[in-house]
Structure formats: structure tokens, C-alpha cells
């Protein structure tokens, strides 16, 4: 009895220690996010005002101005990139999960995983060679294509995984009703997985929203309004980069503000669409 009681205490102590370590690690996971947000709010919040969202950058030497063109530029680039990345990624993911031969799918998956690990600067250089040089100039198109290329493998893999998670019993139930295969996939399987697929798209958007390297050689950035897709366009990460490495105090201030706005945009994107896609009957939270 004595021995077992001692044993019991010892076990409880060990269990407690492990729980504490796990909790500390969980905290460590969210700590960087907290740190980033805290830092950005402290240094950037003061400079995020109405002007920041509505004014163009002031010429060098003048104090003030905003990043209106960069904000619109980032949204334009993301929109166009999504036009390329979402259909290709989602349809490709559907193919991998529902059709295709084992060998071909393995090859596509393997390639997608390599592409996911490709440094983003490489995308910039590749698109520079493929688009910027032939088109004789930096452009919105080139920037969007670079970001879109980055999105494809991300969306492809998450879509495939979400579809594979849909239990086969639903496919069988639909087959037994004599429904054609493409309708089963589109109206039943994809619908069941839709929340996960949307989440994957969002994550991909959030990931590329902050990319600077692929835009350096493609969208290039500018300091004006641009309404021509064949011309260079400003983007928040580019602007932040330019301002942060500048020698001017006022630009540093605005770089912090830009970083704060960028991260809030990504956050809003996540929260907003999550809220919108809170499906009527979806099982998973």
C-alpha cells in the first residue's frame, strides 16, 4: 500500500511536469505573434491615420504622405494572383484526390512539394525572365503571375488533403443514387470539403500577401497611382522594404505603420472569410 501510494504521487508529479512543459511550449507558439503585434502597435499605431490610407507618398524630403497606392496595389496583385492560383490549385487538387493514376499523382504531389519549398526570390527571377523581359518592363501582370505561381502548389495540396478527408461513405451513397461522377464530386464531395478548401485558399493568400522578394523583379513598385496592368505597381511589402532601408526618420515611421496595416489585412482576411464560411451545417469547427 505504502509503495503504491508513493508510486502514485511520483506519477502525479511527472504528469504535472509534462503538462507544464507542454503548456509552456504552447505559449511559445503564440508568443512570436504576440511579440510582433505588440511591437508593431507600439511603433506603428501612432502613424496609422486617415492620411496613411488616402494619400500618396510625398516626394523625398517632404514629411507626411501615405501608402494609399501600395494598399490598392497589394489588393490588385492579390486579386489577380488569386484568379490564377485558385482555379488551377483547386481543380488540380480535385484531380489528385478524385481522378488520376497513382504514379502520375505521386509525381504531381512530389513536384508541388518541391515548389512549396522553393525560395520566393526564385519565383521573382523566373517570372522576370519569362514575362518582364519579353514584355519589356515591370508590370502588374508579372507581379500577379509570380504570386499566383506561389499559390498554386499551396492550394493544390490543401485542396487535395481536404478532399481526401471526406469519408468514402458519402461518395458511395451518392453513387448508389445513380448520380454522375462529376456531379458527385462537384455537388457533394467538394461541398463537404468546402470549408477546408476555403481555408487553404486563405492561407495561401495570406502567405503571398506579405511576399516581397517575388515582387522586386516583377511588380517593381512605384510612388503613384497606377491604373494600367502593364505598368509597375506599388505593393505594401515593397513599400515597407524601401522605407525601412531608407535613411529618413519619417519613412521609418511609415514603414512601421505599413507593416502593422499589412499584418492586420492578413488577420482580417483570415477572420473575415472564416466568419463568412461558417457553413450552415458543417461538422468541423
Amino acid at each position: 500500500m505504502q509503495v503504491s501510494k508513493h508510486h502514485h504521487h511520483w506519477r502525479k508529479l511527472k504528469s504535472g511536469c509534462v503538462s507544464i512543459v507542454c503548456f509552456a511550449c504552447a505559449l511559445a507558439v503564440i508568443a512570436p505573434l504576440g511579440l510582433v503585434l505588440f511591437h508593431l502597435v507600439r511603433l506603428g499605431a501612432g502613424s496609422v491615420d486617415w492620411h496613411f490610407f488616402t494619400a500618396l507618398p510625398k516626394p523625398v524630403g517632404e514629411v507626411g504622405g501615405g501608402m494609399a497606392n501600395a494598399i490598392v496595389g497589394t489588393l490588385t496583385l492579390l486579386g489577380l494572383a488569386a484568379l490564377l492560383g485558385v482555379p488551377v490549385g483547386v481543380l488540380g487538387g480535385i484531380y489528385l484526390s478524385e481522378y488520376g493514376s497513382r504514379r502520375f499523382n505521386w509525381l504531381v504531389r512530389f513536384m508541388a512539394d518541391i515548389l512549396n519549398g522553393t525560395p520566393s526570390i526564385v519565383w521573382g527571377v523566373v517570372v522576370y525572365a519569362l514575362l518582364v523581359i519579353p514584355m519589356k518592363g515591370f508590370s502588374v501582370y508579372a507581379g500577379a503571375v509570380a504570386l499566383g505561381f506561389m499559390m498554386i502548389p499551396l492550394i493544390l495540396r490543401t485542396t487535395e488533403e481536404m478532399l481526401t478527408l471526406v469519408p468514402n461513405s458519402y461518395r458511395e451513397a451518392a453513387y448508389a443514387l445513380g448520380i454522375a461522377r462529376w456531379k458527385i464530386i462537384l455537388h457533394i464531395v467538394v461541398k463537404i470539403a468546402s470549408k477546408g478548401i476555403v481555408t487553404g485558399v486563405l492561407l495561401a493568400l495570406a502567405r503571398v500577401a506579405g511576399e516581397t522578394a517575388p515582387l522586386l523583379f516583377t511588380a517593381f513598385g512605384n510612388r503613384f497611382w497606377n491604373h494600367d496592368l502593364k505598368e509597375p505597381i506599388a505593393a505594401l511589402p515593397l513599400q515597407i522594404f524601401t522605407y525601412a532601408i531608407s535613411p529618413y526618420e519619417d519613412w521609418h515611421r511609415q514603414a512601421w505603420a505599413g507593416a502593422l496595416v499589412l499584418i492586420l489585412m492578413v488577420l482580417a482576411l483570415n477572420i473575415g472569410v472564416r466568419f463568412l464560411t461558417r457553413g450552415k451545417f458543417s461538422a468541423r469547427g
Partner: peptide, 10 residues
């Protein structure tokens, strides 16, 4: 089927 499988989104 053995396990009831109504479509969860409907």
C-alpha cells in the same frame, strides 16, 4: 449502408 451516411452539408 451499414452506417447511416446522410450528406452533412444538406
Amino acid at each position: 449502408f451499414q452506417k447511416s451516411n446522410p450528406f452533412p452539408t444538406m
